[in-house]
Design a protein around this nucleic acid. Structure first.
Lengths: 338, 338
DNA sequence: AATTAGCACTCGCCGTAGGCGACTGCTAAG
DNA sequence: CTTAGCAGTCGCCTACGGCGAGTGCTAATT
């Protein structure tokens, strides 16, 4: 049942070589690589055994071996040590982050770009979302006589805005008064508390308060529309995607708005690897994902990850994702306080 | 020099048929379509003439005709009447817009989705940008003792935020005082006016004011990072993109951040068609773009458009873009006031 | 029992060849 | 200016055969 040491070495070499070259790996190639010092016949026996166990397959009789999803998984879990990025590469990335202007949107875009390039896959990152939204401040801005813009700032600095249709014409000074009143009433409150304080408000104040609640709820529940992507180009040049339909799956996944949120992930700090869709996302059968949650647990978190072919440089991807998630966590800590 | 009426009809039919089928159009096909009532030999003569004029080409000797970029251009400018979307389709789109929650981000996402589906191409839309930013309100939110979040609301409701590193530990009440002071000083001012009022501020106030100015400038000059995209899937199934490298060009264009802004466009209201990159974007030689500016001229405008193969349903695309641009202009008018 | 050498066999890949069919271009007549 | 007719081009499909990479098996060896 368990693999011998040599079989593990062979599996490891097959995975790494196949990831690098995208060509089936032959016993001859393993022999000349010098990773094991036995004859090609012995290697073939081991390859056959690995195939029996389901770690490898054959595209056709006279071809080399290719890892299966199970093979990749074994590799990631058992054979892949703690790979670190080359130090200078890590430094470059850190440097880029410290140089960037201190704005969330730019950080996210940067993170996506850095990740895409470093992992050579498509990168996704969703904005950090407050797990426990708290009202901080709202503003009402008159735009037309019967229309106003509501800007809501949440604890931590998340900003949401929405247009409000007014029942009666209302001028700016009146709006400002209303805003001041609501600010006084709701400052620092969570949605439940706000709901408890709705009594006694005028119709208009009630409208505004309801909109604010709606925006707060939206922030907690709805998939964030703020998902930054990058690196589609990188991944589309992979050989498995030049031929038609495989590309569609991955592009479709990236366009799906709620995609990232569906992955219920572990705590901040762990990196999760999903290989070949793992049954649950069967459109992604030839894709793998490496994802992590970043931010501050229980307070504000977002998701960051990469999507690529199953034939993905897992070592690089995992360490890149871990690094970027760590950096983003730091930033979230800075912005939102700890 | 000028084309005869029959040649125009033939060119029109070739363009439309090729757009629909992606296959070269033969004289036989034109004959049996019944659009012209002459023999196939006559049609061949006209096809040859159209080819001499540069409106059509031949992939090879024994193949039908395919429009050139010049042919598409002639078709769009001279032969394509004012195409309207089927009324029920237009109604569906209008309906979707009126149903959506009144939030800018959602509108943009919706616009991109609607456009992608309706035009069967990839859609891009950039957030409206104030052409003349004016300060409205800022807030300073304490996060850590030496760090604060600056939230800036511009006239019209655009919101920008940035982290501010503080020289000395500062608590929230102090921050609020500073914010109140700056709000009083700068309310309604444009960048130039603000610069004129910097004298006499404390170091810390100066820092905050400078950041605010930077954010205002960024809003006016930098390419908006807020570009919503949709419909890559649609366009990647087109036959010209299943074979590798063509897809890269279009994906790359869509990932380019400042891409939309580079197109210096006419006023709000006109729809611009760029066919085959038109020399300027030579990576996009096999792509066309249909773009329009939306918003309120001289105040706040954004760009909306679709990108697809030159073999694009121009009629549909133009009317879809025009419709969506019109709707978005209405929304910008509502939000920003007129 | 594990390893190795040797060999037959499989099968994808590639270049060649031939036939079919879709179109065109041209010429000569109406 | 239009048309009928016909020769000629060229892409596409299929069939064929040889090459070579790589396996699987068997029997011998350690």
């Amino acid at each position: 049942m368990g693999l011998t040491l040599r079989q593990q070495q062979i599996l490891s070499y097959v995975v790494q070589t196949y990831v690098a070259t995208a060509k089936p790996v032959s016993s001859q190639a393993i022999l000349t690589s010098g990773h094991v010092i036995v004859s090609s016949a012995t290697i073939r026996n081991d390859l056959a055994a690995l195939e029996d166990e389901g770690f490898l397959t054959h595209p056709h009789t006279s071809a080399g071996r290719v890892p299966t999803d199970k093979g990749y998984r074994y590799f990631v879990e058992r054979l892949l040590g703690d790979v670190e990025l080359p130090p200078h590469e890590e430094n470059t990335i850190r440097h880029q982050f410290h140089q960037a202007r201190l704005e969330m949107g730019q950080w996210m875009q940067l993170a996506a770009a850095v990740l895409a390039r470093s992992s050579r896959s498509a990168a996704l990152i969703s904005a950090p979302r407050l797990e426990q939204p708290r009202f901080r401040h709202l503003e009402l801005i008159s735009t037309q006589s019967q229309m106003a813009l509501l800007v809501l700032v949440l604890q931590g600095g998340t900003v949401r805005q929405q247009v409000l249709a007014l029942r009666d014409p209302t001028d700016q000074s009146e709006l400002s008064q209303t805003a001041a009143r609501l600010n006084g009433l709701f400052g620092g409150a969570d949605p439940a508390t706000i709901r408890g304080r709705l009594a006694g408000l005028s119709d208009f104040e009630l409208d505004a308060a309801r909109s604010a609640l709606e925006l707060m709820a939206g922030d907690a529940n709805q998939p964030s529309t703020e998902v930054f992507r990058d690196g589609l180009t990188e991944v589309l040049q992979e050989p498995e995607f030049v031929s038609q339909s495989g590309a569609r799956a991955i592009v479709h996944a990236l366009e799906q708005p709620g995609f990232l949120q569906d992955l219920t992930l572990a705590k901040v700090g762990t990196v999760q690897v999903v290989i070949g869709g793992e049954g649950r996302w069967h459109e992604l059968s030839s894709c793998s994902m490496v994802m992590a949650r970043y931010g501050v647990d229980g307070f504000a978190t977002g998701t960051v990850g990469v999507v690529g072919p199953t034939r993905m440089p897992y070592g690089r991807a995992i360490s890149s994702v871990r690094l970027v998630a760590g950096l983003m966590s730091g930033l979230v800590g800075d912005i939102y306080g700890e």
